[in-house]
Design a protein around this nucleic acid. Structure first.
Lengths: 192, 192, 192, 192
DNA sequence: TATGAATGAGCTTTCATTCAT
DNA sequence: AATGAATGAAAGCTCATTCAT
């Protein structure tokens, strides 16, 4: 148990270091020094730097997957509320895990074909959920006729950019504000 | 003049190599070998690898800035058409310059505080243009009441994600399709 | 303790390599190959080639400073004997440390403003000691009237040249012979 | 003739650059830029950087050799005055050619076995002249009994050090002062 | 389980020299 | 004679990883 804790601690420290310096600038030394472990110990816990990074990304993607629940049109809760809850959970998680979010959007992209696949596959899954909901919504006459694929992609992009700007840029917003704004934008039409 | 051509050629080859392998995995050797120049010649044309990369990014950002024109509400052309033309030019440029686009979204982010600033500043400018148009639109009753800042960010994110997915992912779309879809999404309301 | 020994060993080997090839011609590779360590190990022990060289020079200058003791006119031992002991210790040290002496006179000069300062400052200190003794000697009527500054410089030069010639050149002399000759030259005029 | 002038000019500029930066830090580029010639032109005039440097050193050594004249005991001018004239000419030349002097004492030493031989052979010649004079002086009872070889070396070292200190260090002296001081130091003991 | 000294492949960059014009 | 773009060998240094203790 002690070992698992230590591992988790190193993982958290590594996330912070990666977020601070970026994957390449973050040296294994930086991590072990901050974690107060020996260099060799690092390799006792992790295959290598790359694998540790992968674990961080996988962890975040897993938690994001958990946060996103398939919309159930038959459920008592209205579809739009289910969607809103999904978005809220995702945004809340990303805002909570700033370090992991940062490395996901700025370091994992283009680092490696493997990571690109991982991310693309994740975004594909999310898009598939959204596309399903939108198609269903169109079938029920709740959603405007348009390409569900592109619309889903656009929504994902909106969330990513708002999160990205609030982490890197000067955008100062809270979770509720983001969710409300997204639904204000998409919910009634930006341009009438 | 021959020299300028050679320089441009190396620049183009470097863009391709960076797009293929990523900034860090792309070695100066890869570039010079493909360009069929000696390693020393590379440093005759460019300060170093970093500076060459910066030139590529600056070039694309410059062309993007040129593609984005401030919306003129007093012009005879409808505001929405001006907006559409902006989006079309941007998307067309990004689709045309796939290699540069790829390195901008996947390598320039988090590479360096300098590059992050560069990108953030660019996105800030674009957002400012969009925000202005949205605010003006709201004043004229053409745009739904919502945070212009977040809405603008959302729109930028939509464009980025669609472009990103069509370059990295499996999204197979053309320029017109993207523009139409964006306006279908935002133009009449995604959810009724 | 093992590590300190290894470090000292590398230092000694480096001194020999520098003496043999000169600072610039001596490659880090030459040193590590002779020391039978990996290239990376070198940088574990020393900041870089320059710093290692600096350490060698500092070490010799330090030992030379220790060898030179301020003349005490009030001491029971005659001033001239104190002076002779100083010269003997210096010459003996330089003869003993041929490699270090060689790099000090042939590589450290003009290598770097920092090294020039270091050497100049050392020679300045030695000259100051000698000047003091000469001035005191003149006050006591033991030394011929002449510029103590130039005389001190001349004496230093004599020692340097004799050592230099006996290391580089064909001058085959021993410590005692050098000391005796110096005092034979200077002993009846400079010192009355 | 134009070409010879140009060559001489490049030579002079190179001397200045070498004196300023040292042999290794002085790049061929620095020289050609200051001389306002193309890089290729440099190699039209000189074999290479090393040969140019050699020419500078050879030139100074040649002029020094000219300045040093063999003492003629049979001449009407007293031996001591002949010696003094020699020293005066040498010191005057070195003070006049500070750049060349600097590179001779700080760059040529230990640069190359070839240069070391060159310098050693020069100093050997000078020493031989001095030794001859001192031996002759001893035979005539004009000079104290001591090792002519070591005495000659000491005198050479004195001159070198004074010149070195007045170029690199803070020693501010004129030619006459140097000559006078040297003869004050050596003049009453070495020379009876 | 933990350590940290040792490793060495591999990188970017420099610069004296060449050679087609 | 003059040019300067091109060359490429060679150097210093880094850092992820290994392994003897």
């Amino acid at each position: 148990m002690k070992s698992a804790e230590r591992r988790a601690q190193v993982l958290a420290i590594a996330a912070a270091v990666f977020a601070e310096k970026g994957y390449h600038a973050a040296k294994v030394d930086d991590i072990v020094q901050r974690a107060r472990i020996a260099r060799g110990t690092f390799y006792l816990y992790f295959e290598d730097k790359h694998a540790l990074f992968g674990e961080l990304i996988d962890g975040l993607l897993g938690r994001l997957r958990t946060a996103i629940r398939r919309i159930d049109v038959a459920a008592p809760e209205p579809v739009i509320e289910q969607l809103r809850a999904n978005v809220r959970r995702v945004v809340a998680l990303l805002f909570e895990e700033r370090a992991l979010t940062k490395i996901m959007v700025s370091d994992a992209v283009g680092l490696d074909p493997g990571f690109d696949d991982k991310l693309l596959s994740f975004y594909g899954q999310v898009r598939s959920v959204l596309e399903g909901s939108l198609s269903e919504g169109q079938r029920l006459g709740l959603v405007q006729p348009c390409s569900p694929q592109l619309a889903a992609t656009a929504v994902i992009g909106s969330v990513k950019e708002i999160v990205y700007q609030s982490i890197f840029g000067r955008l100062q917003v809270g979770v509720e504000e983001v969710v409300d704004s997204l639904f204000a934008c998409y919910g009634q039409s930006l341009l009438r």
